[in-house]
Amino acid sequence: MPDPGQTVLEVRNLKTVFQTRGGEVHAVNDVSFELRPGELLGVVGESGSGKSVTMMSLLKLLPIPPAEIRSGTVKFDGKDLLRVDADTLRAVRGGKIGFVFQDPMTSLNPVFTVGMQLMEPLRKHMGLSKSAARTRARELLELVGIPDAARRLKDYPHQFSGGMRQRVMIAIALACDPKVLIADEPTTALDVTIQAQIIELMKELQERLGMAVIWITHDLGVIAGIADRVLVMYGGQIVEQAPVRELFANPRHPYTAALLKTVPSVRGARADRLTIIEGQPPILNAAPAACPFRDRCERRIERCARENPAREPVGPGHDAACFVAAAEVESAHV
């Protein structure tokens, strides 16, 4: 079980902005969270809520320009990753922090063999010789469940199916025994059976290797099954944070509550029970001066249009950025 006292990764007040032709896009607004050793942290939120941009900002993997990391700190190993020199950052990338990207079909280089792409980080970070790297690459492919690994090292990405490519991506991310693995929707592009296999595999690897994992997904079902703790993102902000059971039992933010209602429950689910959240996601063209969810919120009060709520504790290890929820907790205590 994760130790609540320590953190491996601590993100404070991260702000990322894109300069586009149509003006600025404030994709990540004042995001703070921490990751504890051995923990699986789920990140959910609708499309465009800033999940990928947040995680890529941590390792400065966004194209600069158009992206710009305005402010924030990312503490890892006693250093601020946003301010370390290029060499230190490169030692972390692919070494201590592995990254699995959203789209397995395009994330591998089409003109190099899978073996070469897998051996690259091994040689760079672990200083392995060519033959040692090849042996380890074969082991990694076996670890992620690719049959006939020795032969497949010589194959090119197009010779692998989508699910197999995602496994290769996971193998690359795991290559140097990272302390942290960031997996950006590692299963979205896959069909359900492969999805289940990959989830199973990741969970097993996480326990075996004892690393902390950040798992981004749209799929609340997956989160319920594997996460220890969950961040809910909306409009470039973290609107709620809680241990997984607490969140599903007791969603405090109206967005989270609505999000949970969109999931058809397994027992007696009918199409008419499937709700959608009315309205449009917010336009992120300025730093938010009000609650980003207010236009779609059923419980909004007048204050929501004037101020952007900060996250306040609303339960054990549970906080939410909502005036209404905070007031409820307050009154319950009095």
Partner: peptide
């Protein structure tokens, strides 16, 4: 330069 595999290469810590 805009392709996803370039980001992967950077995420591996290559120069």
């Amino acid at each position: 330069l805009g392709q996803d595999y370039v980001r992967t290469a950077r995420a591996k810590g290559l120069t």
